[in-house]
């Protein structure tokens, strides 16, 4: 059973951060979907509701997504359905149901660095930065690789550009966590291949991405890149699949992702 001693709704980030730092078990609240599951003992729960962090707005070459924005807002946002071939809405599409996505927030999804996250995989294939109250602005990939440090994720920045992207996943049943998820993107000639739910957190297949960016995109090269991605990343075993199966799936889905992006590119031109 989870316990909670106090709940506060601060009016500014400084105050929120102060309370967060006061005690080890003080915690920022997201959508609270997973709260009841564990036996978490929260001291002061910090609700960011009053900080106006629920927004998706475009400015200065970026799309800014506030931490308290719900996954449902990502899913239904008109521009996001256009940008990057709608990769962000697609990535959250299968997460449980509308009610769940109305509650779960972008901030909590990204900050928690869940291995099963669908959103992180898609964001990582774009030019994404996160802005932390204390830690400042940094690339998503750096944030993911950084050791855990208590902070408040304020917003996510996604650079607006002509990146084409695709999101693929395999689930044992439609509303389950993904066995594996893959996002592939291309900006000019530069490719990014991301694989998540390995089941550890999403990572960029750096060498496969680089190889693909240098080549001529022949079928052999695409298959080679997919194979390379499966080889350079590590995969684990859990109830949803073995590492061997994930590795095999990685190869198939990366290949399909590349093809989908190429296809999107062609239909655009």
């Amino acid at each position: 059973m989870f316990t909670l001693v106090d709940l506060v709704q601060p009016d500014n980030l400084a105050e929120a951060y102060q309370i967060l730092s006061d005690k080890r078990n003080n915690t920022i609240l997201g959508g609270c979907a997973f709260l009841k599951m564990g036996s978490k003992r929260i001291g002061t729960a910090i609700d960011l509701t009053n900080l106006n962090l629920s927004y998706i707005r475009e400015q200065a070459g970026f799309i800014e997504i506030g931490a308290m924005t719900s996954l449902r807002e990502i899913e239904t946002h008109t521009q996001l359905r256009e940008y990057f071939n709608g990769v962000l809405p697609k990535s959250v599409h299968n997460i449980i149901g509308v009610q769940f996505r109305n509650g779960v927030t972008v901030g909590a999804s990204v900050y928690s660095k869940y291995g099963f996250s669908d959103l992180i995989t898609a964001l990582l294939a774009l030019d994404t930065e996160v802005e932390l109250y204390k830690g400042g602005r940094m690339l998503l990939v750096d944030f993911l690789n950084k050791p855990h440090e208590k902070d408040i994720l304020v917003k996510v920045w996604v650079k607006k550009n002509n990146r084409k992207a695709a999101y693929l996943n395999l689930r044992k049943s439609a509303s389950d966590y993904a066995v594996i998820n893959v996002a592939v993107s291309k900006l000019d000639d530069q490719w990014t291949i991301v694989v998540g739910a390995r089941p550890s957190k999403a990572a960029i297949a750096v060498r496969a991405s680089a190889a693909l960016s240098k080549g001529k995109l022949s079928v052999e090269e695409i298959e080679g890149a997919a194979q390379r991605a499966a080889e350079e990343l590590s995969f684990g075993t859990n109830a949803r699949g073995t590492s061997e199966y994930r590795k095999a799936l990685c190869q198939v889905l990366v290949k399909r992702g590349i093809m989908e992006v190429l296809h999107a590119n062609q239909s655009d031109n």
């Binding site: 729960a45 609700d47 009610q99």
Partner: peptide
Amino acid sequence: SVLSCSILSLR
């Protein structure tokens, strides 16, 4: 539509 089982009443 939301899941009332996972929303803290104070919120």
